[in-house]
């Protein structure tokens, strides 16, 4: 059977179970509202534009946070890749920081920046920076020595060698790093909004929860998941695939 057909049957079964279970009151609607009420909450949210404002607000923060994290991550990664001393010292710290969920920085961020947008953006930046740095570092270290030798015989040295050969050769890792940075930053942003201020998808989620509106909570969760999946599958995976093909890394 084709994947698409399998998926359609699978999702149809879940949806049917969800809706029928709700209608027959297998569980209390307050604990888990029906699909149709989630759907109407979403329609309502888009009609009165609150969800649209939330989306715009969240994406603005993400754009700022992710851009900064990609720039800082790339610079740190290049430093770690080129300098052995930096790798042995700063590299160990980055590796340790990478395993700390960035949301635990929020208390400090609120202390430094106040309970505002800056604190959320700070957490988002931390979410993406380290994973980008580590991928960039691996990319620089994995550049085929053959490319470097070939470039040297053609007169390339120093900065020229770096910008024309080493950096472009590590683009596949830049793409993977960006994809992971996006995923981490997106999670960090949602957590940050949930725990601090709005507007934003995460903030609306908590607001709805305070009023016991589980239909909105589930609706926003669906939006968060859908955006995550769409950006990953339709943007990053496509770029990654074409880069892997072009760079001759297909196995």
């Amino acid at each position: 059977m084709q994947t698409a057909i399998k998926r359609i049957i699978f999702f149809a079964a879940i949806i049917a179970f969800w809706e029928i279970g709700s209608r027959l009151e297998f569980w209390h609607p307050l604990i888990f509202p029906s699909l149709s009420s989630v759907f109407s909450a979403l329609v309502e949210g888009f009609q009165d534009k609150t969800l649209i404002y939330d989306l715009i607000a969240s994406f603005k923060r993400l754009a700022v946070g992710l851009t900064i994290s990609l720039i800082i991550g790339t610079l740190i990664g290049i430093l770690l890749g080129k300098s052995k001393t930096a790798d042995e010292t700063l590299g160990a710290v980055i590796l340790a920081l990478q395993s700390v969920p960035s949301i635990v920085w929020l208390p400090l961020a609120i202390m430094w920046f106040g309970l505002n947008e800056k604190a959320v953006i700070f957490v988002t930046i931390l979410g993406g920076t380290f994973v980008m740095a580590l991928n960039m570092r691996t990319g620089i270290k994995n550049v085929s020595p053959l490319y470097i030798k070939a470039a040297q015989t053609m007169g390339a040295t120093g900065i020229d060698l770096f910008t024309r050969v080493i950096f472009p050769a590590s683009i596949p890792y830049v793409v993977t790093g960006s994809r992971l940075a996006w995923a981490f930053a997106w999670r960090a942003l949602m957590a940050g909004e949930l725990l601090s201020t709005g507007p934003g998808l995460g903030y609306t989620l908590r607001y709805a929860s305070d009023f016991g509106r589980m239909d909105i909570v589930i609706g926003v969760m669906i939006i968060i998941g859908a955006i995550g999946m769409i950006v990953d599958q339709f943007i990053f995976q496509r770029i990654e695939k074409s880069v892997i093909k072009k760079w001759g890394l297909e196995s």
């Binding site: 053959l146 490319y147 030798k149 070939a150 015989t153 472009p168 760079w247």
Partner: peptide, 18 residues
């Protein structure tokens, strides 16, 4: 050091894929 007066061809083509 390497120089442009000597062109080198390796066993692998070593073309830049990008």
């Amino acid at each position: 050091k390497p120089g442009k007066d000597r062109g080198m061809v390796f066993q692998q083509a070593a073309l830049f894929p990008w």
